[in-house]
Computed example of a mutant assay.
Amino acid sequence: MNTKLVESILQLILSLPTDERLWLEEKLFSNIPYPSSNKLMNLAESGHSFNFLYDEPDIYTLEDGERI
């Protein structure tokens, strides 16, 4: 990686007036797609991060709390 070039570009961007910097950020980041809810759920499920919940006791029922 060309660190000097990246640092120079960063300094140039930081020296821009706020409105120009915001415009540049919008152009750079506006086309980044956000993952869908299904993709996020699949990621959470396939990562096994929540498997510990299978060992937790079921202490709540549908009758708990107030109705919405």
Rank of each mutant, 00 (worst) to 15 (best):
M1E: 05
M1C: 06
M1V: 09
M1I: 11
N2I: 05
T3D: 15
T3H: 15
K4L: 04
K4Y: 02
K4H: 06
L5W: 09
L5Q: 12
L5D: 13
L5H: 10
L5I: 11
V6T: 06
S8C: 14
S8R: 13
Q11S: 02
Q11R: 08
L12I: 12
L12G: 07
L12S: 08
I13W: 07
I13P: 01
L14D: 12
S15M: 01
S15V: 01
L16G: 03
P17H: 01
P17K: 01
P17W: 00
T18M: 14
D19Y: 07
D19T: 15
E20Y: 14
E20I: 15
R21Y: 06
R21P: 00
L22Q: 08
L22E: 08
W23A: 13
E25I: 14
E25K: 07
E26I: 09
E26Q: 10
E26T: 07
E26K: 08
E26H: 05
K27H: 13
K27F: 09
L28I: 10
F29E: 05
S30D: 02
S30Y: 01
N31S: 13
I32A: 04
I32P: 01
I32W: 01
I32N: 04
Y34C: 04
Y34F: 06
P35V: 00
P35E: 02
S36L: 04
S36Y: 07
S36W: 09
S37K: 06
N38A: 04
N38L: 00
N38R: 04
L40F: 07
M41G: 04
M41V: 07
N42W: 07
N42A: 10
N42M: 08
L43V: 05
L43P: 00
L43A: 10
A44I: 04
E45F: 13
E45D: 10
G47Y: 02
G47N: 05
G47M: 03
G47W: 02
H48K: 14
H48S: 15
H48A: 12
H48R: 13
S49E: 03
S49W: 10
S49T: 06
S49N: 05
F50S: 08
N51E: 11
F52M: 14
F52S: 09
L53G: 09
L53E: 10
Y54F: 15
Y54V: 09
E56P: 00
E56I: 01
E56V: 00
E56W: 06
P57N: 12
D58M: 11
D58C: 11
D58Q: 11
D58N: 12
Y60D: 03
T61A: 13
T61N: 12
L62G: 10
L62K: 13
E63T: 15
E63N: 14
E63V: 12
E63P: 10
D64F: 08
E66S: 09
E66M: 11
R67W: 09
I68E: 03
I68A: 04
I68S: 04
